[in-house]
Design a protein around this nucleic acid. Sequence first.
DNA 1: CTGAAAGCGCTTACAG
DNA 2: CTGAAAGCGCTTACAG
Lengths: 343, 343
Amino acid sequence: LLQLVAFKSFHHPVTLADVARRAGVSPATVSNALSRRGRLSEPVAERIRALAREMGYVTGHAGRSLRTGTTRTLGLIVPDFAMPLFPPFAQAIKRAAERRGYAVLMGDALASADGQTREMENLVARGADALVIIPVRGSTVVDSPVPVAIIDSESRPGNTVSSDHREGGRLLARYLIGLGHRSILILAGTDTPTGESSTVALDRTRGMREVFDAAPGVTYDAIPSPVSFEAGKDLARRIDPSRYTAIAATYDALAIGTVVGLVERGIRIPDEMSIAGFDDVVWGQIVSPRLTTIRQDLAAISERAVAIVTGERDDGCLVPVELVVRQSTGAPRRRDPASGASR
Amino acid sequence: LLQLVAFKSFHHPVTLADVARRAGVSPATVSNALSRRGRLSEPVAERIRALAREMGYVTGHAGRSLRTGTTRTLGLIVPDFAMPLFPPFAQAIKRAAERRGYAVLMGDALASADGQTREMENLVARGADALVIIPVRGSTVVDSPVPVAIIDSESRPGNTVSSDHREGGRLLARYLIGLGHRSILILAGTDTPTGESSTVALDRTRGMREVFDAAPGVTYDAIPSPVSFEAGKDLARRIDPSRYTAIAATYDALAIGTVVGLVERGIRIPDEMSIAGFDDVVWGQIVSPRLTTIRQDLAAISERAVAIVTGERDDGCLVPVELVVRQSTGAPRRRDPASGASR
DNA sequence: CTGAAAGCGCTTACAG
DNA sequence: CTGAAAGCGCTTACAG
């Protein structure tokens, strides 16, 4: 238990100069053999590369950084790692970065705008070449000395990459109407610690409103709310289930809390109430019934954000989202059984 | 949407030499003012520090690393960020590292032993001063050129820091017996992709066996299994609920899957079946009923692992665990209603 | 096609 | 108490 594995072999790392000496050439030549193809005759280069490999040479990062002024490291700041959306998001960004030979330094804003700013300074001081930021809801991203890509909503000023949250709202609204719902409750999830509304929540709500407003015979209420699981449970206790046949929450955590709260009240889902959320978070597959949701394309967003920040592209984009139908939504069975149930 | 925020101010960073010039002293003196207290007269030092602050100087990491041979960066490798235990674990390790002025480079083994080895090489090449590894279940940690702290079980050879998983098993077993359970099913969670058993699962099972073996009138079966949520759901379909009054799974995900699977079969929890797990993962608070579990002290483990790897200490330790009672366990109501129900 | 030299930004041992 | 010098490990512009 007390023995430290692998604490033994703290060999001095082998340097370019070591390899050069053994190869009988200059360090410059080794460097050229390793990185700049075509500068040396292939046989010589290959001999040097083989030797380097055999000696276990790996490029010293500090030396390279100092010389090139670049670290090939990206800083990533997420709002809060404890929220289920962000670990898979971070994985996607890491993959996109690795494909380009970049490492990623993770920052966690711990759900506060100050934390976000602190992490920005931190990561820059650590030598991040660029930053990818998923901002804390309602926060402003301060100025940065290195390139920044922001992943948020199309409504954020100066934004770069975002899911088409508004279209997501429309997709969900159309789906609910198609199922036969005519009285819908929107849990807007717009309350933030800072008081500034989350543009993501706003866009999702706006998309739903557009569709509901245009649909004859459909009524809805939209109430502001925080976004957490707990908030959903609280709300579920106060909702009048006779007034609506469906609830659309702008975040899965909120939707899941609502599901759990309503189930505790003995309300059957989806027969008495349909519920849906946004983001396709893992929790949605654990709750019973499993949650219908709008899924973001994390891989596509990450790919673009990293491409921007590494200088491959300079334009942001709107990434399509997708409706994922599960068991928490269905035709209303209680109040308007006649109205075109689709199954 | 297309505009890049903060892309403007790519000022050349201000260097030590810049500050020195403006202060009319040598770079060495600025360095001394900034880092080595007492080398300069306080007024002079303070004047230089103020100037540096005003000029926005931050220590260039590459230069410092090259000179000192140290990066003050820790590499962390987790088995799989998609598993709910690891994001909060990573947060705890990051906090422990930050308290000591270390940044952390995150590695994700993506649930494979090869991935783990690859990440080790990666992080070392990136200049990690040391590594903290939570190994993939059933994997071996290969030799490393930098200090490594391993977070696993006391049964792993060469291990350094671990929760007292065995004691956790004992705690849970005693609790179930105290509730009145006499026929218990252990879901051992010992199957791993590599075929090597997970020592964590083994220790947990061992702790439970010890207690059950010593308790008169208690019988139990222990069946091997994988550890996922899906595996739990599958198992739940095949379990004969008349044979046991309680199920103890060595991981929460497995326990939660079992809960969901049994609930789908209409089995009432905890009246007809008590279920408990290990780790106190967030999911356990989303499932209904909420899960009784054994909680690890992530902060204490992380603190020690980081202390070891930064050279503050050289001894590992066994960290106590804690029973968290929630709604998924209770006195057996069905088969032996007489036997000392404790509530 | 190959090598010697300069220099990236720091810190520390040494000299004054 | 303060400064000049050396050097950490690389890469690249330049000279041969």
